[in-house]
Design a protein around this nucleic acid. Structure first.
Length: 547
DNA sequence: TCATCCCGCGCC
DNA sequence: AAAAGGCGCGGGATGA
């Protein structure tokens, strides 16, 4: 396999340069092609190169628009971000260089004013030089194998993100409209839909304030308090605790009003075109390695409108989610055999109950999440000692991550994505609190911030490794889907869940591929592990039929 | 008037 | 029923 690097020529915007490289980054051959001929050149390459480019989000869409799919790539910007920070590459030239053009956001905002006018032109980002720095950083690292897997998974994720945006999620505006009309009442120009307006009236009547504006938090808070409700805010959990006639209509109003503003008709018109919802995915957009999205709120599609996600006629949706992914990942990372045994059955939480650790599934769930997120108070913290006894290795791993964070140290995922350091203010606070003669308030504040950061690092190692597993799962699935007839393709990804739009005739084959890919992901990350990565897989016509 | 802050809540 | 980590977004309030 060879590398094929794409470079711009600043002097000639109408052409792009192609550099053939060996695996170690040695330049073998150079050529130039007209920019508009690039898709044809890409299509005709028979040697299945790994494309190397600065930014998949910029380079891949024109190829997709021309009907060209790229098998694999190396996204220099995403890989740079990982290697700059990874504990495994801290001694590399890449990590030790001062910040340069590969650092920072993809589209940096223009610099205001003249502060930087006299420092000369910005450093030019030479992709060949950058690639060679990255390859050297990996080759010289403590864990080249893990990093290579991580960089490949991250880059494949970028390809998938572009492909999913290109293909779009099948979306029925008719169903969406029917759902909204059913829940909210018919759409009305310049006013609330009827059911929402009726609820608003009920609230105003219950409070005895006919002119109250429910959409103003301060007004609503004042209105509640003057009606004798003892609340500090207008949050749902405070309203729920009220014993007052306003409670139920207000809760209903808040719920529906949220639906209207977040995923109502305006959202539909802004984001759904030609029967497809096309959010912009942002691979690596979260520090832990999870994806973010920008626009459309694709990672927060409420359950109430998922029925609008409908397969095309003759097609199906194959919806799969990894069951209790984070506990399973923790069991694998820590080599905790007892926790792996609990996950031997489809429902890991029930496995914890069956092992006699706690009484109910719900307790098992909250105890486990408490361990991963760092619950310090409440019922879930009370269950921690039992979890520690039953699963000592798993708990020790997250505890060690928490302690590291409290000290201001960094932690890493299984494949080497490393957490950021706490900011300067945090470190200063820690230093001030440990200095001679520090006030009791300072010490308390520093302890609290330390524990906050410890909860972040505790969660980072598990959430981040789960994100790596999910990337490997999806990358394996993408490859397997190529071997299935009828072009089934990924259309959605949500942390531990994937959705494939598939011709009905091959949907069962896709479901098999989904399972096989999960096994492959587990092996890729952890080798021979006793941990099962269980899935819930559903073949359905619409998203609400899953789960 | 516009940009930013903060609240509140949807998802995992 | 619980408490905690990660996000994005819309809306009003706020302040330049």
């Amino acid at each position: 396999m060879s590398l094929l690097l794409l470079v711009d020529d600043p002097a000639r915007p109408d052409v792009v340069g192609l550099r053939s490289l060996s695996d170690d980054g040695t330049l073998l051959d150079s050529s130039e092609v007209p920019t508009d001929a690039l898709p044809a050149v890409a299509r005709e390459r028979a040697d299945r190169p790994r494309w190397v480019w600065d930014d998949t989000a910029r380079r891949y869409p024109p190829l997709l628009a021309a009907g060209v799919r790229v098998e694999r790539c190396h996204d220099l910007r995403l890989c740079h971000a990982i290697l700059r920070r990874s504990v495994y590459t801290q001694s590399s030239a890449l990590a030790q260089a001062p910040p340069g053009p590969w650092d920072g956001p993809r589209d940096p905002a223009p610099v205001e004013g003249s502060l930087f006018d006299d420092v000369g032109p910005a450093a030019v980002a030479d992709p060949l030089e950058e690639l060679q720095l990255q390859l050297a950083a990996v080759a010289g690292s403590d864990e080249p194998g893990r990093l290579r897997l991580l960089l490949a998974a991250e880059s494949t994720g970028a390809l998938i993100a572009a492909e999913m945006h290109h293909g779009g999620m099948p979306w029925s505006v008719e169903t969406h409209d029917a759902l909204l009309t059913d829940l909210l009442g018919p759409r009305r120009k310049g006013g609330r839909p009827a059911k929402l307006e009726a609820l608003a009236d009920e609230v105003r009547t219950a409070l005895g304030q006919p002119a109250l504006n429910l959409d103003s938090q301060p007004d609503l808070l004042r209105g509640l308090r003057s009606a004798g409700c003892d609340v500090e805010s207008t949050r749902t959990w405070e309203i729920k605790a009220l014993e007052h006639p306003v409670r139920d209509p207000l809760l209903a109003y808040k719920k529906l009003s949220r639906l209207l503003s977040a995923n109502g008709w305006a959202w539909m018109e802004a984001w759904v075109h030609d029967g497809r919802f096309r959010p912009e995915y942002v691979p690596g957009g979260v520090v832990t390695g999870r994806w973010a999205t920008s626009g459309g709120g694709a990672l927060q599609l409420p359950a109430s409108i998922r029925g609008a996600v409908r397969a095309d006629p003759g097609w199906k949706l194959v919806v799969a989610d990894a069951a209790q992914l984070e506990p399973r990942v923790l069991a694998a990372m820590s080599g905790d055999g007892a926790m792996a045994a609990a996950g031997r059955q489809a429902d890991l939480y029930q496995g914890v109950v069956d092992a006699g650790i706690v009484e109910t599934r719900s307790e098992a769930k909250y105890a486990m999440l408490g361990a991963i997120y760092g619950a310090t108070t409440g019922p879930s913290a009370v269950l921690m000692p039992r979890l520690t006894t039953a699963y000592p290795r798993a708990v020790a791993l997250v505890e060690a991550a928490a302690r590291a964070g409290e000290r201001g140290d960094v932690v890493s995922t299984w494949l080497g994505r490393t957490s950021p350091r706490p900011d300067a203010a945090w470190q200063a606070e820690l230093a001030a609190a440990s200095a001679e003669g520090a006030g009791a308030d300072d010490v308390r504040a520093a302890r609290r911030r330390g524990r906050d950061w410890g909860r972040f690092t505790r969660n980072f190692v598990v959430q981040g490794t789960a994100a790596e597993w999910a990337l490997c799962w999806m990358a394996a699935l993408r490859r397997r889907l190529l071997a299935v007839d009828g072009r089934p393709h990924l259309v959605f990804f949500l942390h531990d869940e994937v959705m494939v739009h598939s011709p009905a005739a091959v949907a069962e084959s896709v479901a098999v591929a989904v399972h096989e890919s999960a096994v492959e992901a587990g092996r890729l990350l952890f080798g021979e592990t006793p941990v099962d990565f269980a899935l819930d897989v559903v073949v359905a016509d619409s998203y609400d039929q899953a789960k």
